[in-house]
């Protein structure tokens, strides 16, 4: 079940990018014990975002990542510790 951070991420990304596809994967369990055990792996600290949106057309890698980071600035300033981003525009090859 999605926690509050994941739900907020989904809503903000949907508004900002009107994505054709949006996968938000909680990978926090892969990082259990991170930072001296402060992260137990059950929380909402590490996410992977796979997002397919026409909004990325014509944007380079840095600009795409910055756009996603900007949309999730509140979460990144809060409990969201790590964010892997796989952005794509329609027609680009993806492995997901």
């Amino acid at each position: 079940m999605a926690g509050p951070i994941e739900s907020a991420m989904r809503e903000k990304l949907a508004v900002a990018f009107a994505p054709e596809r949006l996968d938000i994967i909680n990978e926090s369990h892969l990082h259990a014990g991170h930072q001296g055990g402060a992260m137990d792996g059950t929380g909402e600290t590490h996410f992977r975002v796979r997002i397919l949106s026409a909004a990325f057309e014509g944007l380079g890698r840095l600009a795409r990542h910055r756009a996603v980071n900007d949309a999730l600035a509140d979460e990144l300033a809060g409990g969201l510790h790590a964010l892997a981003i796989e952005p794509a525009a329609p027609g680009e090859p993806v492995r997901w």
Binding site: R61, L62, H65, N69, A73, A77, A82, L83, A84, I85
Partner: peptide
Amino acid sequence: SNWPTIPQLYVKGEFVGGCDIVREM
């Protein structure tokens, strides 16, 4: 760098990206 995560790679004074971008490149 106005970039919220670490690692960050710089080449010749210029920000290249973080882990995802470096790996994709």
